[in-house]
C-alpha cells in the first residue's frame, strides 16, 4: 500500500523585498485612511522579487520519511511552513491525505504560567488532538518526558531540558498520519535524543509518514527513506536514501 500522502506540485513561494502588500481595495482604503496623502506610497512598482521556492515537485508515500537537505536559505523550511499551513503558497498546490502534526518547534503554545499538566492539554489541542485522546495517552507522555514530579509546577520553573522533554513528549504521542519536523530532533541530552529517534522510527514502521529538515547527516541516515536536495528554492535532486545524493551533498 504505497499511497501518496503528500503530493507537492509546482509549488512556488514569492516574496517581494520592498515589503509591499498585495493590492486589495479594502487594504488600500484602510491605508489611505491611516496615512492621509500616503496612498501613492503603495503604488510604487519598483519592488524586487524573491522566489523562496520555485516549481518544487515532491511526493511522500505512506510510511516514508523524506528528508530535505540543502544550505541555509535553500527553501527547506519554507516547504515545511507551507505544508504546516503557516504560510500560503504563491502558486502550485499541495495535496495532503491524513492528519498532520507540525513540529516546526517543540512546545508551541506552551505558557510559562501554566503547569506541565495544563500545557500538555493546550499544546495537544494545538497539534490537533482531542482532549479524549490526550487523556488516553497522558501517562505515556508523562513517562516519556520524565517530569512526573513537576507535573503541577508552572513550566516557568522548569529547567530548559525538562521543558523540551515535556514538549517533545506531547508531540511524539499525538495521534497522527503525517509528521512535519524542523530540526526539533536535536533536543535534550544524547540519551533523550536517542529516545526520540527510536520513538520516531517506531512510528514510521507503524505507517506514519514524515517530512523532516535536518542538517545532521547521521540523523537523516538513520531515519529517512528518501532525500530531496534543495538549491536556491528549486529541487536539485531527489531519490532514495541509499542513492549517492547524500555523498555528493556532503562533498559539495
Amino acid at each position: 500500500m504505497n499511497d501518496i500522502v503528500i503530493d507537492i506540485a509546482n509549488l512556488s513561494k514569492r516574496y517581494s523585498l520592498s515589503h509591499q502588500h498585495r493590492p486589495d481595495s479594502l487594504k488600500a482604503w484602510l491605508r489611505a485612511m491611516m496615512r492621509p496623502g500616503g496612498i501613492k506610497l503603495g503604488d510604487q512598482s519598483t519592488e524586487e522579487e524573491f522566489w523562496a521556492l520555485k516549481d518544487v515537485n515532491l511526493q511522500v508515500r505512506e510510511g516514508e520519511c523524506l528528508a530535505l537537505i540543502g544550505k541555509n536559505g535553500s527553501g527547506k523550511s519554507t516547504v515545511l511552513k507551507v505544508l504546516a499551513r503557516v504560510i500560503p503558497p504563491t502558486s502550485g498546490r499541495v495535496r495532503v491525505r491524513g492528519r498532520v502534526a507540525s513540529l516546526l518547534e517543540v512546545g508551541t503554545g506552551f505558557h510559562p504560567e501554566l503547569t506541565g499538566r495544563e500545557n500538555i492539554f493546550l499544546n495537544g489541542a494545538m497539534l490537533g488532538c482531542r482532549e479524549r485522546e490526550i487523556r488516553r495517552r497522558f501517562d505515556a507522555m508523562v513517562e516519556f518526558s520524565g517530569v512526573e514530579r513537576f507535573l503541577d509546577t508552572p513550566v516557568k520553573h522548569y529547567s530548559s531540558g525538562m521543558y523540551v522533554r515535556l514538549a517533545y513528549a506531547v508531540a511524539a504521542h499525538v495521534d497522527t498520519d503525517i509528521l512535519i519536523i524542523d530540526e526539533v530532533l536535536a533536543v535534550g541530552d544524547a540519551e533523550f535524543q536517542k529516545k526520540c529517534q527510536n520513538h520516531l522510527r517506531t512510528a514510521l514502521a507503524a505507517g506514519t509518514s514524515a517530512i523532516v529538515v535536518s542538517h545532521s547527516i547521521p540523523t537523516i541516515k538513520t531515519l529517512s527513506s528518501h532525500v530531496a536536495w534543495l538549491r536556491e528554492g528549486r529541487l536539485y535532486e531527489a531519490g532514495p536514501i541509499d542513492s549517492d545524493i547524500l555523498q555528493r551533498y556532503a562533498a559539495c
Partner: peptide, 14 residues
C-alpha cells in the same frame, strides 16, 4: 494510521 482520516486537504493559497 489514526482511525479517523480527514478528507484530502488541498493547500493552494486560495
Amino acid at each position: 494510521m489514526s482511525e479517523n482520516r480527514p478528507p484530502t486537504l488541498i493547500i493552494d493559497g486560495s
